[in-house]
Computed example of a mutant assay.
Amino acid sequence: MKILLTGNTGQVGYELERSLQGLGEIVAVDRTRMDLANLDQVREVIRAVRPQLIVNPAAYTAVDKAESEPELAYRVNAEAPALMAAEARALGAALVHYSTDYVFDGQSPEARVETDPVAPLNVYGASKLAGEQAIAASGVPHLIFRTSWVYGMRGKNFLLTMLRLAKERGELRIVDDQHGAPTWSRTIADTTALILAQARAGGAGWWSENGGIYHLSSQGRTTWCGFTAAILEEAGIACKLVAITTDQYPLPAARPRYSALDSNRLQERFVRLPAWRDALRLCLR
């Protein structure tokens, strides 16, 4: 099986290039070779590689910046995945794509299941939802994994920012009224690889029986302040932590207050997922 992997220098893409080893021939491309903002280039690369599977973790993820450049966010997060889906279907290939907890409005304190109504609060979430809908409408065999609060030891993410700021400052003021599940990029990659191994063993009918949207996030939930407290404790860094409200830290893009995802559907069908604190400990180790 030939696998086209996008965004291999990003948090999730880097881990996927490692985790997918052994499942097939991996053709990994970064933004210089396949820029999702350049739809002609996306089409050209897919037609040149002719993969049996496209795995697309690449995305526009600048949540606040998306408010001021929605056209670019939609091109990368909606139009490019739609094009990938169309090209994959023409090749008889399948598509794995990643989405976000931000497709929900976060009004309910309950963890969201895949069939709950979607109502994104910001451009980023709306663009990711449009990508989901385009893939589903294309008829291509697909898996869409919604995940949340992604972090890792490379790139730009909350974990690395907190580690840096805690060493530079004596005090951190962190939002404590937004709830979700921090998810290690390696958890996402390893889970994807385990599921795709099942798909390879499952034969031709596997995708029609198992395709669709799944929630893929670590188990449990916390707040950004609680996540920070765990980071400092696990890293052994002493720093004063002050809990604040969302209103005390205004940003251009609105965030859902409750964006925990219920991953039971994925766990019942495929594989168990770790508790967020256990994954954080392994990541820092």
Rank of each mutant, 00 (worst) to 15 (best):
P109K: 12
P109E: 11
R112T: 08
E114F: 11
T115L: 04
T115R: 06
D116M: 13
P117N: 10
V118K: 11
A119D: 01
A119T: 14
N122R: 10
N122G: 13
N122W: 09
N122V: 11
N122S: 12
A126N: 00
S127H: 04
S127L: 05
K128E: 02
K128N: 01
G131T: 04
G131S: 08
E132V: 02
S138G: 07
S138L: 12
V140M: 12
V140S: 07
H142S: 09
L143R: 05
L143W: 06
R146W: 07
T147Y: 06
T147F: 02
S148E: 05
W149D: 06
V150H: 06
Y151A: 09
Y151L: 10
M153R: 07
M153E: 04
M153K: 08
R154V: 11
K156A: 10
K156V: 14
N157Y: 04
F158H: 06
L159M: 05
L159R: 05
L160R: 15
L160H: 11
T161P: 07
T161V: 02
T161H: 14
M162Q: 14
L163K: 06
R164H: 06
L165Y: 14
L165K: 14
K167E: 10
L172D: 09
L172Y: 01
R173V: 01
I174V: 15
V175S: 03
V175T: 15
D176K: 06
D177R: 01
Q178L: 13
Q178H: 14
H179V: 15
H179P: 15
G180M: 02
S185F: 03
S185T: 12
S185P: 14
R186N: 13
T187K: 01
T187R: 10
I188E: 12
I188T: 05
D190F: 12
T191F: 01
T192L: 00
T192Y: 10
T192C: 10
A193F: 13
L196T: 01
L196R: 00
A197H: 02
A197S: 11
Q198A: 12
Q198E: 15
A199F: 07
R200G: 04
R200N: 04
G202M: 14
G205I: 03
G205D: 06
W206S: 00
S208I: 00
E209G: 12
N210V: 00
G212K: 02
Y214P: 04
H215M: 02
L216N: 03
S217Y: 02
S217K: 03
S218I: 01
R221V: 05
R221S: 15
T222Y: 00
W224D: 08
C225R: 09
G226M: 14
G226V: 15
